[in-house]
Structures are given as C-alpha cells and as structure tokens.
Design a protein around this nucleic acid. Structure first.
Length: 869
RNA sequence: GCCGGAGUGGCGGAAUGGGUAGACGCAGUGGACUUAAAAUCCACUGGAUAGUUAUAUCCGUGCCGGUUCGAGUCCGGCCUCCGGCACCA
C-alpha cells in the first residue's frame, strides 16, 4: 500500500475479474474479494524518506496522483494514514476499471484490522501446536551500527549479496597457537604447502572457545556475532610469524608461514592457506617469492622457500600436473597484483576442478573420489575431528545505508516455519499433483519450489504487522502473515457489518477452531466468548459454504514464495483436503511497448490514467488479451484501436439487425438451397467457437478467447453477411443468435460495452448475469463446414488462376464428388459475382465434359479442377 | 553460482503424446471509395528461384551436434533473456 495500481497490477486483477465474471455467468455464486496488505517495511520506509525530503520518493507518490498537500499529510500522519489513503485510491481505480469485487469483504492487514491480527495469532498458535514452527539460529547480513539485519533495500552497496560459509582449517604452530585459515575449498588441504600472512599487518592473539587463535582484528569482530566466545589477548605483527612452522591438521605434515601481500584482512580470518598447484593466487605468490631473494633474506627464509614445492592433488581432464600454473600462463598472469585476471583464473579453475576433478592418491581416504561428491562429507569429517570450523562471510562487500560495512551475524531465537519437514513437503507435493495450474507450465515451478524450500524465518523485528502471540518482541513476517487470508474473506462481510460489536479478543482461538474446523460447540463458545451464538454460526456457515479457494491468480514472481506458502499452510491448517486450494493462475509482468515500465523512464502507466484515456473496457481487453502464458505481457497504446474498430462494427450490426427479413428455415418459402447451406455453416461455426472460447476462458487463456470471439467469430459473421448479399437478405434468427452469442462471449472481458450492446438489442436484462452459452455440439455439421471451406478456398483459387490466365470468358469447374457439384451449383449466384461470362460445372468423370486441358483428372475431394479461357 | 521458465517473420505472438512452421492480430505495400483526410473495403506480405492455373524446388523456429522416414517439438553440449534464491514484498 505505497501507491495506486499501475497497469502491471491491473493486468493481474483484471484477469481475476474476467474469470469471476465468466464463472458468474456459468451460474456459480462467485466470491471475488480484494483486501490490502499493509505490513512490513515499505510504507514505514517511504514515510521516513519523505521526512528526509527524498525527491524520488515524492515523485513516486506524485506519479500516482498524490498532491503536495497529500505528501505533507503522509509525513504528519504517518504510515497507517498512507496505507488508508492508497487503499481508498485503489478501490476507486479498481471500481473505475469495472472489477466486480465484493467490497463488503475488504480489509487492510494486519494490525490495522485487529480481528485480522487475531486471525494471524490463531494461525500461528495452531501451527506451533502442530509443530510447524520452531526456533533456531540463522545467519543474516547485519549492520553493526544499526544493530539490525540489512535487507537489499537498506543497502548502499551489495544488493543481492548473501551469506556464504567459509571453512576454517586450524593449523597449529609449535607454540600450540592456531592459525585459522579460511577456505572455500577444504578438499585442497592435501595440497597445502605453506601459510600466507601479510608481514605488515597487525594481527591479534585471541582466545576463541578456549583455544588460542591468531587472526585479523576484523575477524574477531565478526566472529563475536557468530556465536563464538572470544577474547583478545594481545597484538602480533605478521612479520613475527614469518618462517615459523605449523602442522597441517589434515596431513599432519609441517609447513612454513610465508609472506604475501594478497591476504585481505577484510575477508574471513585474514590468514590464507596456500595450495599452489590448484590456486592461481598461491602459484603466483610462490613464484614471486622464489624470485625475490631480498624478501627471503629479510625474513631469513631462503632455505625454507627453496624447499617448498607445489603438491598436485586433483586430476582434471584437460589439465596436467599443476593446473594453476597452466591457467596463469594461459592468461598471462605474472604478478599477484593482477587481481582481475587472478579472480577470473581462480573462478574458472575452481569450477572446472569441482565439477570434473578427481582426488589423486595422496588425498587420504578420499583418494579416487570425485571432488563434487566428497565436498560435504569432507567438511563433516573435518568438523567431527575438531580441525575445522565455520566462518560466515558476505558473498561481496555490503554497505548499509548508514554507510557502515556489514558482516554476517548469526541470529539466535529466530522463529522458523519448518518447510523442510519431509512429511509436510510430501503432502504439499502430492496436492500439487492434483491441483490445476494455468498455465500448466507453472506446476513444475511449484513442484521444484517445494523441493528446494527449507526452513523459513517467519518473524522480524521491525515494521508494521502482528506480534507473534507467544513472543511479542517478534512480528510475524510479511510473507508469513498472508498465507491463508482467503479464509478470512468468508468472515469479513459479517465482521465488517458488525464492526464495533465484535471485538477482536472475543474471537478466541476456540472460536476460530469452531468456525474453520467445526471443532467444539457453538452454545458453549457463545458463553465463553460473549459472542452471539447466531453470529458464531453465521461465520461458520459462510466459511463452510464458500471454502475452499477455487482459484487464486497472481504474478509469476510470487510462485516461489507467496503462492507456494499458500498451499503449504492450507495443508498444515486443515486436515480435510476439501478445504485445500483447487487451482492457481499465474501471469507475467507487464512491459510498456516492449520496455520494462519504470518511474524514471517516463513510460509508467498508472491504471487510472489509462482508464481515463481509453475507458475501462479497452484497457481491460488491451492488456488481458496481450498475453496468456508466463512471459511478460505488453501494453501497446496503438493496439487499442484494433479492438475499438471491432466494437464499432458490432454496434453497427446490432442497429442494422432489424433490417434482416427473418425468413423461415425451410427451403421453398423464398429460400434457396444456397442460403440454407450457408445458414447451417454459420450455425456450425458458431457452436464450434462457443466451445473453444469456453475452453479458453476455463484455462484463463483470455487472449485466445478475445481473438476467437472478436476476430474469429466476427470474421465469420462478416463472411456470412457477404455471402448472403447483405444484412437485408440474412436470416434474422441466425444473425441475432450469433450477435447475442458474441456479446455474451465478450462480456467478461468488456462488461460495460457488452451491456450497451445488449441493451441496443432491446434486451431488458443485464448480460453480465445472463446464462453463458453452452455449445450445442449436435448442431455442428462437419460436412457443411468442409463443403463451405472448399467453396471459399476454390473461389480464391479461381481468382488466382484468372489473374495468371488473364482470361474471364469461360470458367470450368470439375468435381470429384456429387456433393461438391451440388454445393457449387447451389452457390452459383455467388459464383457469378466473380464476373465470368459463362460458368460450367462438371463431374470430373463426365466423359462429355468440356475439358481442353485435362484438368478434370486432377480434381480431388476438396480440390476441384479449374480451367479458365 | 543454484532452481525454474523462455528464445519462432518488421512487431505481438499461433502450432509441442514428433507429421503442411508462421494461425489470429499489428505494422507495411498496392488498389477501391473520397475534393482531401480519417474510417472502411479488396489484394499482397519469411527469403530465394521458376511458373497459364489449383503450384514446384531450395533455405529458414538462438548456436553446435545427435536420434528419426520425418524435429520448432525428443536427446547431449553451449549462448542470451526473464523470475526466484530466503530479514524486500
């Protein structure tokens, strides 16, 4: 609720409306509701930015039509006012767009509607009691100054970066102190030849969970937030450690500490283990050190350096003994200062070795195994042996809006939804197999989302929302408080009507259990909650009548979160699968003329502006018919005109309808065989199209529905009128039947225009509540359709031939079947309009036929022979 | 990087239990009507060559390879774009 609807949101909502209207016409009692989600940070953040005079935030609100005065009010009256302000605008705009929403059921989440908050509390109490909510630790990107998690929107730098886990391998100096080396490739420890330390950096000695570690100062700060007991003892200069020996805990061999400049104290512990055979940085570092006699002499490590030799431990196809060496040579890397190239080399070698590499004989118990297969086991093994530990780091630098550099903090006491629960997952997956998805492609996405989903943090510390009932310091997260809100719609009408009379606290967990689960006794609950028994029963009945959700439709970005959670939570809350969701519709985003809509580009389209410019119906059909799969839809101003001209045609036709003479159906009575044929054809086509359009609506394929109706059916209508020689010669009953069907078939898409057309045909009812046409399949005459199609096609061919032959004297047609001969004879009047002086028709087998070029023998069913002279 | 989806004319996009690629619409070109314009109507419209007929031949669905009598569709390997990746909603 930090703006009014734009055409993108409009797309999703109009699709819902079209479907609701379609179902209503099919005779269903449709509950089509709309509520407003005002939880979390966005509005709070927007108001804060307004307070600071943020121009782009002002602009964002102004695009949707907020005035200067409104903006002042936003700051003065705060986030809840902003939410209510935009809620009002939303309702106005959606009404102007003709959305048939039951506004009696609207509400605004969560804390702004205390009864809804109560509903969230009931849900979480229930989930907790059933074991779906647990508490645990959780790494987050953390700003030490703000003392809060730093979401993407709170970042100056590092949008999209997330926590990643380094493995610390503890190398032991002879003094017993540990050199904790952080690595993403613990499997390479078998090839470690030395430790790198920056001689010019000041490290610290610290007591970490009872052990003595040497590490960078920054690392100490970070580890304090990662559940480590840590105390700094004193400082130690890097140079003091150079030349010392330590034990590789994996191989138990002794390796030396050597100097290098690429040890970044901002990353992990600031101490690096060197695997020159497989790490480009280490290879170059060692090469340079071996060449740098002065440096060796400075630290008195000549002998030690000479003894260091790369150890090859991974065999990878396409590489020899020392892959790091090869890749450095290939990319022309000569110095450790060539950071860009080194990063690239490291990345590509890592990938290659991880996916295709095999451990050589010198890799202990992992010898002969694939790198990709051992990684996880190895980390577990090392951790069990007490030689490894973890260090969380951001995937790249993250800077908070307050300009402070962020690191990873492991949050304790965070509440989680246990989406990892195998039983819950299995139930959800099973149900996904039974549900319907539009388009069908979406099913796979839901299925794989369930697969990778693991425990999800469901509470947060700040923003609008409902406090967790048993731990009020936390607020239920914005995704987690809106999983089963559809159930609340069934109550919302009654709760809104009785506003003030029903207090949130009267809706106890037991009352909700009764309403939603049918558990308990209404009379007893009435007593304990002091609610009217009738009201309790009314709420129960409303829920019982409407539930489950038959259709939920939303944007594709919500598949991997909201929409999947929606399925999960219904399964967790209701034992009875009769209450579980039946189908989900998914649509793409909306581009404007092929480009992403953006406030700064100037191609931003608030729904209100478009409706003002084009009227609701043209906006509706222009966006809804622009696309019907999960790809992005496209708003194009110029295509509005196309629909407009079709509508004009329908209005003209409706007004001309009375000119039709309305002849009877039987031959004789002034009706020719030709007319009877064409009428049968028109009726067949109509029924066929009713069937396919209904199927399209059913599957939310509104583009196909609009196309078949507005272009397919009206094209047939035009052809019919043309073939009959104008409206006046048409059968009034047939014409009216087709036009009425067209109006009904477009009614869900263009409700206002449909009503207007309906009225112009002297109908007294509303078409929006008329019966949806049901295809009369028995009226579809395949033979006639085939013959008429042959006729149309042949007529085109004749024109083509006449053009190439440059002749119009004598047209001869040869037919393979009597049916065709008959049909064409009946259509002679129409055929004559082609302008030939003489027309002859023959059976192809007729020996007496005039056939100078032997065209008769080439005639096939559906393809008569043509000769023109 | 990981998971999922997609890539077809000038454009939006049809067609996938393998079987005539380009339905329908837009734009474009030519013509009719009009003093003119708009609107409307008719014809053409992936590329190339040939043609007194209804066509014929070849090339064409992101790239490379494969399976098959036959591949937009299936398989393997890439490239590009979109969505999600968890304290943004």
């Amino acid at each position: 609720m930090n703006g009014a609807p734009h055409i993108g949101a409009g797309f999703t909502f109009i699709r819902g409306d079209v479907y609701a209207r379609f179902k209503r016409m099919q005779g269903f009692n449709v509950l089509f509701p709309q509520a407003f989600h005002a939880t979390g940070e966005p509005i709070v953040g927007a108001v804060k930015r307004l307070e600071k005079g943020d121009k782009s935030q002002e602009q964002a609100f102004k695009i949707y039509g907020a005035s200067e005065k409104n903006l002042k009010d936003f700051v003065k009256k705060g986030p809840k006012f902003v939410a209510k302000f935009w809620k009002k605008r939303w309702i106005e705009d959606l009404q102007a767009t003709g959305l048939s929403i039951d506004w009696r059921r609207t509400f605004i989440t969560t804390s702004m509607t205390p009864t809804y908050s109560r509903f969230v509390e009931w849900q979480y109490n229930t989930l907790k009691a059933r074991g779906y909510v647990t508490q645990g630790t959780h790494p987050v990107v953390w700003c030490p100054k703000c003392r809060s998690p730093t979401g993407d929107h709170d970042r100056l730098e590092g949008v999209g970066e997330s926590p990643t886990e380094y493995i610390i391998i503890k190398f032991k100096l002879t003094s017993g102190e540990m050199l904790p080396c952080a690595t993403l490739r613990p499997e390479t420890m078998y090839g470690a030849t030395n430790i790198w330390i920056d001689p010019d950096v000041e490290y610290v000695r610290a007591e970490v969970n009872g052990e003595k570690w040497i590490l960078s100062k920054t690392a100490v700060k970070k580890l304090k937030d990662q559940l480590k007991e840590i105390k700094i003892i004193d400082k130690v200069k890097g140079s003091e450690l150079i030349g010392k020996a330590c034990e590789n805990p994996v191989t138990k061999t002794k390796i030396p500490v050597l100097p290098a400049k690429f040890c970044d104290t901002e990353i992990a512990t600031g101490i690096v283990v060197s695997v020159p055979s497989h790490a480009p940085y280490d290879w170059i570092g060692l090469e340079e050190l071996k060449a740098d006699k002065a440096q060796q002499k400075k630290y008195n490590i000549e002998k030690i350096v000479r003894a260091v030799e790369p150890i090859s431990i991974i065999a990878t196809e396409g590489f020899g003994e020392h892959p790091a060496k090869e890749i450095c040579e290939k990319l022309g890397i000569k110095t450790q200062k060539d950071a860009d190239k080194l990063e690239k080399a490291t990345e590509s070698l890592y990938k290659k070795e991880f996916h295709t590499g095999t451990c050589k004989k010198n890799c202990g118990r992992y010898a002969g195994m694939k790198v990709s297969e051992i990684k996880e086991i190895l980390v577990e093994d090392f951790t069990d042996e007490g030689i490894a530990d973890k260090f969380w780091e951001t995937t790249a630098t993250v800077v908070c809006r307050c300009k402070t550099k962020c690191h990873i903090k492991i949050l304790e006491n965070q509440w989680f939804l246990k989406y990892s629960d195998p039983k819950w997952k299995e139930q959800t997956k099973k149900w996904i197999r039974k549900m319907k998805f539009y388009p069908e492609d979406a099913r796979k996405q839901f299925d794989s989302t369930v697969d990778w989903l693991h425990d999800k943090a469901c509470t947060r510390r700040s923003g609008l929302g409902t406090p967790l009932p048993w731990d009020k310091e936390w607020i239920v997260g914005t995704l987690s408080d809106s999983t089963i809100y559809m159930a609340y719609y069934t109550l919302a009408k009654t709760l809104n009507e009785k506003k003030g009379k029903i207090k949130a606290e009267q809706l106890t967990d037991e009352v909700f259990d009764y309403i939603f689960f049918g558990k308990g006794d209404a009379a007893k609950l009435a007593k304990s909650s002091r609610l009217d028994k009738k009201i309790i029963e009314e709420l129960r009945n409303e829920f019982d009548y409407f539930y489950p959700v038959d259709m939920r439709t939303s944007g594709k970005d919500l598949v991997q979160n909201h929409l999947t959670f929606f399925i999960f939570h219904h399964i967790a809350m209701w034992d009875d699968q009769e209450r579980w969701p039946r189908s989900i519709g998914v649509n793409g985003y909306v581009n404007v003329a092929g480009e992403k809509m953006s406030k700064s580009k100037g191609n931003f389209r608030p729904l209100r502006d478009l409706v003002k410019k084009y009227g609701a119906d043209l906006v509706r059909i222009n966006i809804v018919a622009s696309n019907e799969n999960m790809d992005d839809a496209d708003w194009r101003d110029e295509s509005v005109q196309t629909y407009n001209s079709r509508i004009n045609y329908l209005f003209e036709l409706a007004s001309e309808l009375k000119k039709a003479k309305g002849k009877g159906r039987k031959e004789g009575e002034g009706k020719t065989a030709q007319n009877r044929n064409i009428e049968m054809y028109m009726e067949s086509r109509l029924q066929e199209l009713i069937k396919s359009v209904t199927d399209s609506y059913e599957q939310m394929k509104f583009r196909s529905a609009a196309q078949s109706t507005l272009f397919g059916l009206t094209n047939e209508l035009k052809a019919y009128i043309d073939r009959m020689g104008g409206v006046a010669n048409c059968n009034k009953n047939i014409l009216a039947q087709v036009v009425e069907a067209v109006i009904k078939l477009i009614a869900p898409l263009m409700p206002h225009i449909a009503e207007e057309l309906w009225a112009s045909m002297n109908k007294k009812s509303f078409v929006s509540i008329e019966k949806w046409p049901v295809a009369q399949v028995e009226k579809i005459n395949k033979k006639i359709m085939q013959l008429e199609d042959t006729y149309k096609k042949t007529r085109e061919d004749i024109k083509q031939v006449a053009k190439l032959a440059k002749a119009d004297n004598h047209l001869c047609l040869y037919f393979a079947t009597d049916e065709e001969l008959e049909y064409f004879r009946a259509s002679m009047e129409n055929l004559k309009k082609l302008g030939f002086k003489k027309i002859s028709v023959f059976k192809s087998t007729d020996p007496k036929a005039y056939d100078p070029q032997d065209k008769a023998e080439r005639a096939k069913f559906g393809r008569p022979g043509i000769f023109i002279e």
